[in-house]
Design a protein around this nucleic acid. Structure first.
Lengths: 339, 339
DNA sequence: AACCTTCCCGCAACCGTTCCCATCAAATAA
DNA sequence: TTATTTGATGGGAACGGTTGCGGGAAGGTT
């Protein structure tokens, strides 16, 4: 960076005009003489002039940066969301600053604060699993800072939110299992405090109730997403008077682990029992048997979330709404059998 | 944003002192009376003062932002790299701005230019597969702009680069196949113009030569990473006078597809032929048979790349070096058989 | 000829900091 | 006492742009 970056003042001096005129010419302001306009542009091009966006941001109070807070970008689900956000952001001339909380609430608030400090125009946030206090959110909301939530949202915060349709997805999936003939359907769920788990469980219950089946509480197993939980769950189910003829795991990794475990036990899938997952992990398609699952379109979620943010920034006045991105049931071998 | 953000001038006025003093107090400059210091800090806390980092950046010519250019964040490999970059960046008070080129050279240069325009302190870049002209890189290099390359680097650019050890990885893998008894080893490669492909092919050749095996050019198949390439490749190999007894795919997705295809044909792996991949895709571990592959530690690559950048920014004067992150061979069922 | 527009352009304030330099009182040294 | 250092503070010029306001020249209208 030895060379002095050329500024509008340099150009103004060289052309013998004022920096205001140069500024206006470069901004294509109408009240500039055509001849002056071209002279300025030529000089700018000649000197490889690059406007200092910091100065511009400072005065215009806009950085054209959006802050994104996610738990973990290495999860394909979040990576796709980020990609979707990025896609619509770039299209509108925004850049995104990404921060990861690594599922730590402390890092989450630190990231959020750092982002508002660096003057992003808006914040797109997905909370950690563990986030239970939302003071930091209400605080920036009170200041009028533009916020949009996605995937895991802050309860009771009056901002646009984009979520996947957990209830519906689980509902459809369980209906699919029922159509396949299953009557005793086990549910592999996660920690009870997670909204997503509760919602998917809700869909599960709804489908069973509609089919006139009383939900046996012992069908439901709550894990902590650990590998060790799988064997225990299977033992539990198989010890029941009526072992399940279908299993619905609310996360694909769980379904995958179930399949491996059951296959190792010599059970045939889906003949002995059907298995379904949730989330359309890349593995799902490649396993044997390929896994029936529910695709959530995270890219779409990202796009919608970012679009909400752009509307917010553009001052489009609509009541902040909750947008639900509906996914799609992918019926595969783990419920249908070989095709 | 109705409220006027409080500035140091506001605090100065309220306390009846000059803004210089406030600035110094907040920066914990020694030459400030202790009493003034606490008064300033208390006023700042009371009014929830937030420094305007834009103004600071403008004057100090440092944004504490790093630009990251990657082809596709949805690829686990790149997601991990980004995560690694982020990790060391945050630790040192830097934020990262991420842009995706989507494997399009045009988007790549657009992103890079936008990033230098928004005054990032440095640029971490991984080129697209298709990037063949590197004018944009030389241009910013000439300006003295801090650049670090990773994974796919710009040839002939005198900047720190961090790459994985392609030659070594392929070499070790082929040696492993040889140890397993394979003698006719097919290579599923990618487009010839990609450096990674050429390097891995080099490792492949080296291992065979060392073992005293003449490389049969017909063993090598160049794909374009398409699904359709797989069937053709298999047909080609099986049509040879001596069909291969081992296959090395330089990308895991290829190995996975090979396994599925060969299994569908009724061939037993690894009994009929061994199969190995490269990259340690998450699927590799979960398939059946689990895939022998080479793990590249992308997180580490990201960390190293970012560390190089920080050194660069700190002015640590070392000749820009090429750093090689060596991976690890993961021997699994596709070469070893059931365990 | 006097007046009114319209078109260009320059002046200067402003955005919110940092930081160099000057100032001045108090403390120390001669 | 006087000279010198030290410590705390204020003034003001940057940083690189944007923008409201006013003015002058050119042209058109009564």
């Amino acid at each position: 960076m030895s060379k002095h970056q050329v500024t509008i003042v340099d150009i103004a001096r060289e052309l013998g005009i004022s920096k205001s005129t140069v500024s206006r010419a470069l901004a294509n302001h109408p009240n500039v003489h055509p001849q002056t306009h071209t002279r300025v542009w030529e000089a700018a091009k000649f000197h490889e002039y690059q406007p200092n966006l910091l100065a511009k941001s400072l005065i215009q109070r806009k950085t054209h940066h959006l802050g994104v807070v996610i738990p973990d970008i290495e999860k394909p689900f979040f990576a796709s969301i980020v990609s979707g956000i990025q896609h619509v952001a770039n299209r509108s001339g925004y850049r995104i600053i990404i921060t990861q909380s690594n599922e730590s609430p402390e890092e989450e608030v630190a990231n959020i604060q750092a982002l508002v400090l660096s003057r992003v125009d808006g914040l797109l946030v997905c909370h950690t699993r563990e986030t239970t206090h939302f003071d930091h959110m209400h605080q920036i909301y009170r200041k009028g800072f533009p916020v949009t939530g996605f995937a895991r949202i802050c309860p009771g915060l009056n901002v646009p939110n984009v979520v996947e349709n957990d209830v519906q997805g689980a509902y459809l999936m369980v209906r699919h299992l029922l159509e396949g003939g299953a009557r005793h359907i086990g549910l592999l769920s996660g920690p009870k405090n997670l909204t997503a788990c509760r919602l998917r469980e809700k869909g599960y219950r709804k489908a069973l109730q509609e089919a006139g089946i009383r939900v046996n509480p012992r069908w439901i197993v709550n894990t902590r997403f650990m590998k060790e939980d799988i064997a225990k769950a299977v033992d539990h189910w198989m010890g029941l008077p009526h072992p399940p003829d279908g299993l619905f795991a609310i996360y694909d990794a769980g379904a995958v682990a179930l399949i491996r475990h059951l296959k190792a036990q010599g059970r045939r899938i889906p003949d002995d029992l059907q298995i379904a997952g949730f989330g359309n992990d890349p593995v799902a398609e490649l396993m044997e048997p390929s896994l029936t699952t529910y695709a959530q379109f995270p890219f779409k979620i990202g796009e919608m979330a970012c679009q909400q943010m752009l509307d917010l920034l553009a001052g489009v006045k609509t009541a902040p709404k909750e947008i639900v991105v509906t996914g799609k049931l992918l019926k595969r071998q783990s419920t249908l059998g070989p095709v």
